[in-house]
Design a protein around this nucleic acid. Structure first.
Lengths: 250, 250
DNA sequence: CTATTATTAAAACGAACGTTTGATTCAGCC
DNA sequence: GGCTGAATCAAACGTTCGTTTTAATAATAG
């Protein structure tokens, strides 16, 4: 055969197919034979190139997360340099963290929605090696952004900020994963694969535009009244009120 | 041979152990042999009492969700009756929906935090039978609460409300699941089993007190500026071509 | 050309999986 | 006592899993 794929191609094809299959069926629900047959490579190719199924999953993530987390740190660095030591605004921090993520969904070469969905699902996977992998991979970024939020919201107890960072990660993961109860309401499924990538990119944009205000609203919500150290509930709300859905209550 | 309880006990013991193991290792990561050996029952007992592993998981959920969703409907009915036709406040609706859920975490006989964590994880599971099960089990409750939110926020586009309901479910699931990146920050793990039930109940209370303001803040956040130019919903997408083999690179 | 190295192919490995079988036990009833 | 039907048991079922092994193939170097 004239094709020369000595140094590549197979590897990338395995990663691409694995990414899609892990997204659609989960790690345990995806077999090596599904991956290798769909990628048109031999069964042994995965073990040859990656060593094991677990390592394959990690590599699927690493090739995307390396860019993502570097970019997140770079954007945060830029913001902090521009601010010249002043605390950043919460909206800037969220935009840097979640906006950077959403850019992946808009760019197929960065993984697209397929990778975003895989990420959303895998973040809650109970398997130990997965949690350990993410812990290592995310440690620096989370620490940096956590500190940035502490500085941005000096009057909010740190524990509260950590909780809300937690909630925001959850809202994002779940929203991204896509296959869930919500479709009971809206009535349309997601389609496991080949989901017409034509407007997947705009789908990411729409999701981002809707998720960001929600996260910001949650992050800056009034604190629970009984806060243990009883910090007065300084409420930094309504700085950027455009059109607020009103409630008939205080 | 001490007690002989022909009609029970084994069944309940299987359900209790299965609940805990599914929580700790996921559905695919939990084997029948793990369950039956830990419950001190014969391997065949699960298939005898429940028919299959999948049916076992469904039954684990059904015995808790029946109470939960009945209670959710009852509370909503009460609120709407008290309101005498007036729209409810968003905070009331969220309290009814998520507060009822949190009561499970505070009451061991309703499942406790073990069940909450299992629920949080399973809601994002890609397996088809799981999604179908939850769809059926949640359909009525979600429909009722969705309508209540529509009435409570008449000036917010319905699509936006559905999105935010989505985000809220995600924040809740993720927060509950517990085993995730956040522990990179806080530094303490969750412990797979027998996780010191001493203050699990107060843990549920703390979680609830912190989650609720966040959700309310997100729900009532300012809307994204473009309110109706793009419609992510209402796309029928009727053609669900499943399991299409991978595309050849052009 | 041969020797070498990298990659794929085909087959088989043992282990673990969910499930089924067939015998056995035991309470309750005619 | 003998029968019935629910419940439990040990053992094995056939399948699929991730991985390894062995051999063949293609490209490169000397």
């Amino acid at each position: 055969m004239p094709e020369n794929k000595l140094n590549s191609d197979t590897r990338e094809r395995i990663l691409d197919v694995a990414e899609r299959q892990f997204m659609a069926h989960g790690f345990e629900g995806t077999s090596m034979r599904m991956i290798t047959s769909m990628a048109d490579v031999n069964l042994a190719a995965v073990n040859y190139h990656f060593g094991s199924k677990e390592s394959l999953l990690c590599e699927v993530f690493r090739r995307r997360l390396t860019w993502l987390n570097h970019e997140r740190l770079r954007v945060l660095d830029d913001l902090e340099q521009q601010a010249k030591g002043a605390p950043l605004k919460p909206s800037q921090i969220l935009e840097a963290f979640f906006g950077t993520l959403m850019r992946i969904g808009e760019d197929e070469s960065l993984g697209g929605m397929t990778f975003l969905r895989l990420l959303g699902r895998t973040l809650t996977d109970p398997a130990e090696f997965i949690r350990a992998f993410f812990a290592k991979e995310y440690a620096e970024v989370l620490e940096r952004y956590k500190l940035a939020l502490f500085r941005a919201l000096p009057d909010v107890p740190k524990a509260e900020i950590v909780w809300r960072l937690h909630f925001m990660l959850g809202a994002m993961s779940y929203a991204i994963a896509g296959t869930d109860i919500l479709h009971v309401i809206t009535g349309h499924g997601i389609g496991d694969m080949s989901g017409k990538e034509e407007d997947e990119q705009s789908e990411a944009k729409k999701l981002s535009a809707r998720l960001m205000p929600f996260l910001l609203g949650g992050l800056r919500a009034p604190l629970p009244q009984f806060s243990d150290s009883t910090r007065p509930q300084q409420v930094p709300l309504a700085k950027t009120a455009r059109n607020q859905p009103q409630e008939k209550k205080p």
